[in-house]
């Protein structure tokens, strides 16, 4: 067994532990992290270690360090991977990164944080409060708040108000131009842009009416409260496994049609869909935030519903009377 093996230069010792422990051990035994035959940019200045969480949107998801060549191209060293109690058997560089993983990265102090942002990962330590520029923060809040107020009072069309805020943020250098397009989540934009014509086609072909008809016939003679509850349950179930935007796009026209058939106001039905489409408390895949906390929280796939199922029931029970109160039939 390896315990009897004699150590030679360029051997790799595989260890498991927390970031501080690993640093202490490497220091005590005088081991190093990177290849010395090809000195990397990372070692020219002060290097720092950061723990980061990998969200679904990270550009590392589904790729390996070997494929990304992080060390040579970016000067960032992938020190370790932590995956929820799963012991990884491959060589570190060959491990395919998954959403929810925690990574231990090493890099130059002055650029590591930018690199983490470029990778789309989240550092697991808060930024120091000293980096905040008070005036900029106040200006950002003020611009945003006035746009919201103006749009709410219907002085200005909401998308235009938001566009003005975005332009002002860029002009005032609150969002650097280089980060404007990076901050947009393009997959969601593409999903929405592609799903809208399909949803429109479903309406135009009469498919929406057909589904609404089925729904109305299935709930024939029920009080409106129960029909709303059924609509919310169906929408929530869809939303727990499906993207919530896709859910809303399909469910909204059906809700409208159901309301028309029952000859009641459509607003309670649209509101019920809005609330239900946002509910995704049963699995880590229903909402990006639930995926994000999977690694740091140490949760498994089946841990979410215990707290989430009562919450979904509570949301239905609370939302229906509130909806009928605020948006009468």
């Amino acid at each position: 067994m390896a315990a009897r093996a004699t150590l030679q230069a360029e051997d790799r010792i595989v260890v498991e532990g927390g970031p501080d422990g690993i640093e202490a051990f490497a220091g005590a035994v005088a081991l190093s992290y990177a290849d010395s035959d090809r000195p990397s940019k990372a070692f020219s200045g002060t290097t720092v270690m950061r723990e980061v969480a990998v969200p679904q949107t990270s550009r590392m998801v589904g790729r390996t360090e070997a494929a990304m060549r992080l060390r040579y191209r970016r000067g960032v060293i992938l020190l370790g991977i932590s995956r929820n109690g799963v012991r990884l058997r491959e060589r570190l560089r060959e491990v395919e990164i998954q959403a929810g993983d925690l990574l231990l990265l090493l890099g130059p102090e002055d650029t590591l944080d930018d690199m983490i942002e470029w990778l789309g990962c989240l550092p697991l330590a808060p930024r120091g409060l000293d980096v905040i520029q008070r005036e900029k923060a106040l200006r950002a809040i003020l611009i945003f708040a006035s746009a919201i107020v103006l749009a709410s009072l219907e002085f200005i069309y909401l998308p235009m108000a938001l566009a003005c805020v975005a332009v002002l943020y860029i002009v005032l250098d609150i969002v650097p131009l280089s980060q404007v397009y990076e901050s947009i989540e393009w997959p969601v934009v593409v999903l929405l842009g592609a799903m809208i014509p399909i949803s429109v086609a479903l309406e135009a072909s009469g498919g929406t009416q057909l589904l609404a008809d089925l729904f109305v016939r299935g709930t024939d003679g029920w009080p409106v409260m129960l029909i709303l509850a059924a609509l919310m349950l169906v929408t929530m179930t869809l939303s727990d496994v499906l993207n919530n935007v896709a859910t809303a796009l399909i469910a909204a026209p059906i809700a409208l049609d159901v309301a028309e058939r029952l000859q009641v106001s459509p607003d309670p039905f649209l509101m019920a869909v809005a609330v239900a489409a946002s509910c995704a408390f049963l699995t880590p895949i229903g909402h990006k935030n639930n995926t994000l906390i999977m690694g740091p929280g140490g949760y498994g796939f089946g841990d979410y519903w215990r707290m989430g199922l009562p919450l979904e029931i509570l949301v239905v029970v609370t939302a229906i009377p509130m909806i009928l109160l605020v948006w009468p039939l």
Partner: peptide, 11 residues
């Protein structure tokens, strides 16, 4: 958060 890390033995 237990990490798997490879450490190198320098020459």
């Amino acid at each position: 958060e237990s990490y798997l890390v490879e450490l190198r033995v320098p020459s």
